[in-house]
């Protein structure tokens, strides 16, 4: 802890050091609180299990539905995590302190985003493994599949972080967040589903790569816009 803190201070306490430190601090808070990670894990498992029960037991039907089900689960999961990222500050009323740190507020945006990615990546891998088990998916292309989930998850979380910050102080934010979010992230989910379906159907990687490029473009656009607009919307 001391080494972590001093390293960031040694770098002037700015930029990448602060982003990492905020993400690791939030991860520490989340692990100690336990409620967030456990609810995300159980939500993921229950949702995939119910969908498998509802769509099964025919293997072909399960495989065809799997990409859509997986992405719906990840979309809800990413939404839940973005709410958690700011709930950590709202519950303890510490958001103002964070916003009074010197310099721009972009680092808060990237720190909160990184925190979500640190949870979303392993949870995506878990969702992929569980889906393979429940939906009879071949895992021969596990790495490209994970890359698809990671690229899509990053873009999704980029928008979700922005909106979660914007709504952090409002009552009813849990209702408003999905309403605002889903209209903007439809392209990410669509591209993600198409890439996942392509990989599961054995489409050549060269063809799937066009969906990855599209996801990458969305990631760059959403993260840039999020970082630029976040400081503006966080001002009182």
């Amino acid at each position: 802890m001391r080494a972590e803190g001093q390293k960031a201070v040694g770098r002037g306490g700015l930029g990448v050091g602060r982003v990492w430190l905020l993400a690791l601090r939030d991860l520490r808070l989340e692990v100690r609180d336990r409620a967030g990670v456990l609810s995300a894990l159980s939500f993921l498992a229950v949702m995939l299990f119910i969908m498998a029960l509802a769509l099964g037991p025919e293997e072909g039907a399960l495989r065809r539905a799997a990409p859509g089900v997986l992405w719906v689960a990840l979309a809800f999961l990413a939404t839940l995590l973005s709410t958690r990222a700011f709930a950590l500050e709202v519950e303890d009323a510490t958001l103002d302190d964070l916003l009074l740190t010197p310099g721009g507020k972009e680092w808060v945006y990237f720190g909160k985003l990184l925190f979500q990615m640190l949870l979303l990546f392993p949870l995506s891998a878990f969702a992929l493994l569980l889906s393979a088990l429940l939906f009879h998916l071949p895992l021969g292309k596990a790495l490209p599949l994970f890359l698809t989930l990671a690229l899509g998850g990053l873009g999704y979380a980029g928008v979700a972080t922005f909106y979660a910050g914007l709504l952090a102080r409002l009552r009813g934010r849990e209702v408003l967040l999905p309403l605002l979010l889903f209209s903007l992230v439809v392209p990410v989910v669509l591209a993600g589903v198409r890439a996942t379906a392509g990989l599961l159907e054995g489409v050549p990687l060269a063809e799937v790569a066009s969906w990855w490029q599209l996801l990458l473009v969305f990631d760059v656009v959403y993260l840039t816009a999020g970082a630029l607009l976040f400081p503006v919307v966080m001002e009182g």
Partner: peptide
């Protein structure tokens, strides 16, 4: 201790 160390790091102090 953790709180103060994080605060110092965030504020660059």
């Amino acid at each position: 201790k953790e709180h103060l160390l994080y605060d110092l790091a965030f504020h660059g102090g």
